[in-house]
């Protein structure tokens, strides 16, 4: 009987440790991951637009959609493949991320999801990817349906407000002297009247 139990145990061990999941372990230690450069794998909206609109000529860029299949069905970037976030490490999906012949452009249902995915790949040593901040709606509204790559709000990690000033302005600024920054640009952008404004159009 003992033998059977042992065989059974080892078998289970072998199966559980290796079944159905790609055997990847972390390449970066947690500390290394914390210090890793976070900006290199974020794609700008302009580049995203350039890729999107020249994709007919190239197959090297693979869009990956991390949302659930149901949402994916309702609309996605053309030719994107659907790999729901949780299934990223399954053997089937893992292939796509480990494939070094393409560059993966990853987007999800939110900025955070894309960041989680990107940060995860970074930690297991995959580098040939870019993540899209924002989400699918961002791509749809500002790249696909309209071309609005500059005005669209993209990098949320930038401070949107002068926090200190707002706090000072909110409800009776006590103990706080606001120090508004001096006015800047004007000078360099001024427009001089040209000599012969020939039928000027303004």
């Amino acid at each position: 009987m003992k033998k059977y139990i042992i065989i059974y145990l080892v078998g289970i061990l072998a199966l559980t440790s290796c079944n159905s999941k790609e055997s990847r372990s972390f390449v970066l230690t947690p500390k290394e991951a914390a210090k890793a450069n976070s900006q290199t794998n974020i794609i700008s909206p302009q580049l995203l637009g350039d890729i999107y609109y020249s994709r007919n000529n190239t197959t090297i860029y693979q869009f990956i959609d991390l949302r659930t299949p149901q949402v994916f069905e309702n609309g996605h970037v053309k030719n994107a493949i659907n790999i729901p976030f949780r299934t990223m490490t399954r053997n089937k999906s893992c292939r796509y991320f480990l494939n070094q012949d393409v560059i993966n452009i990853i987007y999800g249902e939110s900025t955070e999801q894309a960041i989680f995915a990107g940060f995860f790949l970074q930690q297991i040593g995959v580098k040939n990817y870019f993540i899209v901040l924002g989400n699918y709606d961002f791509i749809k509204d500002n790249i696909i349906d309209h071309y609005n790559v500059y005005s669209a709000h993209y990098n949320p990690e930038i401070a949107q407000y002068d926090y200190a000033r707002i706090v000072a302005e909110t409800a009776g600024a006590r103990n706080y002297a606001s120090s508004p920054k001096a006015a800047k640009p004007a000078a360099t952008f001024k427009r001089k009247k040209k000599s012969a404004a020939g039928g000027g159009c303004d």
Binding site: G125, K127, N128
Partner: peptide
Amino acid sequence: LDSKQATINL
């Protein structure tokens, strides 16, 4: 895995 930092060349 020999993964290289991706660059975009259109």
